[in-house]
Design a protein around this nucleic acid. Structure first.
Lengths: 240, 240
DNA sequence: TTAAAAAACGAACGTTCGTGCTATAACTGC
DNA sequence: GCAGTTATAGCACGAACGTTCGTTTTTTAA
């Protein structure tokens, strides 16, 4: 019943905070697969073996629960996808690592239902409110990271200066989302191969420095390897 | 209370069929914006000014209603997006027309909430059943159309033979979906400009024949023009 | 014109949803 | 060990969901 995040964190938390984190872990898992509306308080309580009211007291409203879930997903995304890809030196190599990291992430190595924020944004794009705003803001954050990496690669003289960072970021993001979309719908990991090839070919076309910075065109590494699989413990139960 | 589809169709239909079509028209509109679950029988009945039970009798179950709605959306998509783009001669020009047609379609000129099938597939990708299967099959249909257009352009000697049709189709589709996604989330039509530029640049890189077949890089035509706006009559009401 | 058939209605069912209240149990600091 | 805070449980609510059923209205065919 304890969870990893809590163990890592400093001890001596008020008891409720632990439960809360534990709840959110399950919540993120459910929501990534069945959406933030499929994330029902009753269902969450059942899965946590708690009473609805007891669980509910931690958040006060459904919307607060959704916001907290989004926030928890963001933390995990940063820790599992963004930060590891930002360790090396700036340049085209880091840019490519960001892409690879995201593609791995989307294969279900982090969340049960692929990219959490893709699912959430598709679900809330026509539902104005704080949740939608937060999700959009987080996606903007990610875009910013991508664009910065692009500009850094340009500044390092490794990437053609003529291409606009926003344009390239859009393309990379679209190809990645496309892979996530196809994989979720068809369950065919081939989509990731196609996306990888497309991004790589685009980057290679823009690379000004020697292309050894980029890997060969074929599959570059085992896609299921670094999976820490943070949130995969809960029972897999699809909507009836 | 009559609808266009019905007027076009042969007269002397049993009266119920007319109502059914009229219902589906509203259903498609609601579902494209708020999803196939947001498409509630009660809400639909209210919007149609009918009783729940009277409306319900036309379909027998929620799932049948959803399936019928998906089918209706497919008809509209074919009529409004696919067929108009397939009129001219085969080749790279037709391929580009397909892309343009789709981008126009996604700007909300056909459905209230952008691409109906993008929304539907994102909603049902983790919900096994007939609805999901049908949506996936329809998306496959569209992929097939795209791939065929690519192969025809290659056969006509206007497109580099080396690129695999499936690869290019994936890329085009991803860029288009990416634009649809960004537009729905941020409401910024700039996404379509970026997608258009990306597809155009990719095609131009692959074009073997003279590039006059493809338009200039900039915006090529007024994006809101041909809109017949089939399904836009119903009151615009967002989820509370 | 009238009888059969089709379509629409109104009311209700059993669930599940999110959300309040109140009481009890479990921790915490003195 | 006790008081006081915090966490959880139990129960109930109003609303909305999909669905069923019996009745009433409307259309169709003879």
């Amino acid at each position: 019943m304890t969870n990893q995040l809590a163990i890592i964190a400093k001890k001596r938390q008020p008891r409720g905070a632990l439960t809360r984190q534990s709840i959110l872990q399950t919540a993120v898992d459910i929501a990534s697969a069945d959406g933030l509306e499929g994330l029902t308080i009753g269902r969450l309580a059942t899965e946590m073996q708690m009473s609805k009211s007891g669980l509910f007291a931690h958040f006060g409203s459904k919307e607060e629960l959704q916001l907290a879930t989004v926030e928890a997903a963001r933390e995990i995304f940063i820790e599992e996808v963004a930060r590891p890809a930002l360790t090396g030196a700036k340049g085209i190599k880091r840019l490519w690592r960001l892409c690879e990291s995201w593609l791995d992430y989307a294969q279900g190595n982090v969340f049960r239902g692929g990219c959490f924020f893709f699912a959430a944004s598709a679900e809330f794009d026509s539902r104005p409110g704080p949740v939608r705003d937060r999700v959009a803001a987080i996606m903007t954050e990610w875009f910013t990271v991508l664009e910065r990496a692009i500009r850094e690669a340009q500044a390092a003289g490794q990437l053609d200066q003529s291409v606009r960072a926003a344009q390239l970021a859009f393309e990379i993001n679209a190809l990645e989302l496309g892979a996530n979309w196809a994989f979720q719908l068809y369950g065919d990991k081939q989509a990731f191969v196609l996306a990888r090839a497309a991004v790589l070919q685009r980057l290679r076309g823009l690379a000004t420095a020697d292309t050894r910075l980029l890997p060969k065109t074929g599959r570059t590494r085992c896609p299921v390897k670094r999976a820490t699989n943070l949130v995969r413990k809960t029972m897999r139960r699809k909507t009836k």
